[in-house]
Computed example of a mutant assay.
Amino acid sequence: MARRFIVEADGGSRGNPGPAGYGAVVRDADTGMIIAEAAEFIGHATNNVAEYRGLIAGLRAAHDLDPDAAVDVRMDSKLVVEQMSGRWKIKHPDMQPLAAEARTVFPRAQVAYTWIPRERNKDADRLANEAMDAGKAGRAWEPKARPAAPAAEEELPAPAAPKAGWAAPADLGTPTTLVMLRHGETALTPQKRFSGSGGTDPELSEKGRWQAERAAEALAARGTVQAVVSSPMQRTRQTAEAVARRLGLEVRIEDGLRELDFGAWEGLTFAEVQQQYPEDLDAWLGSAKARPTGSSESFTTLTHRSGVARDKILARYPGKTVLVVSHVSPIKTLVRLALGAPPDAVYRMELSAASLCAVQYYADGNASLRLLNDTSHLR
């Protein structure tokens, strides 16, 4: 498999335009460890030019490590992210050649762009300021010694737990609420068979459709949901569509919300996996980096893509209540990240079919778990 990198980049200008510099870090996506840094004072420039220069430097640093890698770029510049994603036109003549240069570093299919809040881009921001300070002192920026690599269970920093807090200050505004709905039952659900993104993609059973309608009734009665986002799997889309019809909303598909790929375990019960693949199962239960037999995914990789999906939703729907229709593993993962719990906490949660969970996210990164495994609408 190709390596996966996270590039975090930033740039700044003291005066805009004024003395400017950029910073960028490259992380190993599986461990979160910083494996490369880049920063430079670039003289007199604008914030946007410095941000683009930081992006280019981060991409080049990742390319030097592995030109075949898949790269997830994360920046707090909405302008750069939207322009490089192709959603906004690049009109400024200073931006056009920089964007063109950034696109030459990797083939477009290997790079994805995600907006993140400024507080989640602290390493790149720090490097940009170090570069500007060095330029002011008339010297070149030099990297400092990096801290030791994070422990394995810390995994990816971007989908890491939001900051803890008893209550968010009033001036942080309205939180974004993710109401997470597990899909209704399929024929495999009552038999407790592994059913991930690599299996038969079953549809809802008759009972599952009933559960989806009961969830739709309950959510319509609350009257708070303003958007619906779903995993691309058939069972989640059917559940999401039942709610969206009742609420008069459209369903937006987010691939990062799909279930884990269980490989050769697809369709088997836990007991059958224990009998046929005992060593692999023990390894999987003991480490977030272990993968089911024949699967390309571990809980570490699922944590990464679930966290990216979460950040996309938070960026798209600030201050709103969003219904997220997904599966056991992604929902448990987002709950445990909100709590700051260790990876093995997912094995200590029960999520019934068509159950509801809710997490609120504040502007400073605080998160508050408000609901877990609510099935009152099914009684």
Rank of each mutant, 00 (worst) to 15 (best):
W141V: 03
L181K: 11
R120I: 02
K91C: 08
V225Y: 04
G319W: 15
P19A: 08
T104Y: 00
G196Y: 02
A264K: 11
R310F: 02
P278A: 08
R235P: 01
L257P: 02
P17Q: 07
S195W: 03
H44R: 14
L172R: 15
A242T: 10
F262N: 00
D261R: 07
L204Q: 06
G365Q: 10
Q83D: 12
L188F: 14
A112Q: 14
V111Q: 06
D171T: 07
A70H: 13
T224M: 10
S195C: 15
A45P: 00
T301R: 14
V71D: 07
S197W: 00
M233F: 08
L371Q: 13
M132L: 07
Y361F: 15
A38M: 00
L59I: 13
L260G: 00
P318H: 10
T303L: 00
E254G: 03
V243C: 14
F299H: 12
A242H: 12
D171R: 06
E155A: 13
Q234N: 11
Y362R: 13
D76P: 11
R193H: 09
A161R: 15
M95S: 14
A216P: 09
A124G: 07
T269P: 03
F270V: 11
H377S: 01
I116E: 04
V273Y: 02
S368V: 11
A220T: 06
L55H: 03
E51W: 09
V111G: 11
S77P: 05
P157T: 13
R252E: 15
L323T: 12
G21F: 02
A363R: 15
T31K: 05
D28L: 05
P147Q: 04
V335K: 02
R209H: 08
K192C: 11
P190Y: 13
N373K: 00
R370W: 01
G208Q: 08
P19Y: 01
A102W: 12
V243R: 07
T177S: 14
P175M: 12
I42Y: 05
A109E: 15
S77F: 11
T375L: 02
T236D: 01
A148M: 09
E279W: 00
G319D: 10
T333L: 07
R310Q: 14
N366M: 15
V273I: 06
N47A: 08
G223Y: 08
F270C: 05
G340L: 11
E206M: 06
G135L: 02
V346P: 01
V179D: 07
L79W: 05
P17C: 10
K332W: 01
N47F: 03
D10F: 04
N47E: 12
T224F: 01
E101M: 04
Y113I: 01
G263V: 04
S85W: 03
S352L: 09
S77G: 08
R146G: 09
S287F: 04
A2P: 15
G21Q: 08
T189Q: 09
G256V: 12
H92V: 13
M180A: 04
G138E: 08
E185C: 14
A170C: 01
L65T: 03
D282C: 02
